[in-house]
Computed example of a mutant assay.
Amino acid sequence: MKRPRFNTLFWRLFVLMWVTLILSHFTAFVLSIPLTTGGGSPVERMSGANLATLPSLPPGNPLTARSDAGPPAAPTAPMGPRPDGMAPAGPRPDGPPPTGRPGDVAGAPPALPAQTLWFDYALRALLIGLGALLGARWLAAPMQRLSRAAAELAQGLSQGRRPPALDEDRGTVEVRETARVFNHMTQRLQEQFDQRSLHMAALSHDLRTPLTRLRLRIERLPEAVAQAAIADIREMDEMIDASLAVMREQSNGAEPRVVDLGAMLQSLVDDLCEQGQAVELAEPPAARVRVHPASLRRILGNLVGNALRYGQRARLSLEPAAAGVAVHVDDDGPGIPPEQLERVFQPWVRLPGEQRPSGSGLGLAIARDLAQREGGTLALGNRPTGGLRATLVLPAA
Rank of each mutant, 00 (worst) to 15 (best):
L157R: 03
M143D: 14
G160R: 02
R148F: 00
M143V: 08
Q192N: 13
S158P: 00
Q159K: 12
R180M: 08
W138A: 05
L153Y: 01
G160E: 07
Q192G: 13
A141F: 09
L139R: 03
F193Q: 13
Q155G: 12
L134D: 03
D167R: 08
A149N: 11
R176T: 09
S147L: 10
Q187C: 02
E152L: 10
A140G: 10
G129K: 02
Q144R: 04
E168F: 05
L153P: 00
Q155M: 10
L189Q: 08
V181D: 06
L153S: 04
R148L: 04
R170W: 12
W138G: 00
A151F: 01
T172D: 06
Q190H: 07
G171F: 09
A150I: 00
A165P: 01
L130I: 15
A165W: 00
M185T: 06
G171D: 01
A165Y: 00
S158T: 08
G135Q: 09
V181Q: 08
T172Q: 09
S147N: 10
E168D: 15
H184R: 10
G131D: 13
L127F: 15
S158C: 03
Q155W: 10
L130D: 15
L139A: 06
A149T: 08
A132Y: 15
L127C: 14
I128S: 00
A165G: 04
G131Q: 13
A179M: 04
L189N: 02
P142E: 12
T172S: 14
G156D: 09
Q192L: 11
G131A: 14
E152S: 11
N183R: 12
E177L: 13
F193V: 08
R180N: 04
G156A: 09
F182C: 06
T172E: 09
R170I: 06
Q155A: 10
R137G: 12
T186V: 11
L146C: 04
M185N: 02
E174P: 07
A154N: 08
A141C: 05
M185L: 03
L189K: 01
G129E: 13
R162A: 15
P142S: 11
A151G: 01
G160K: 02
V175D: 12
E177C: 11
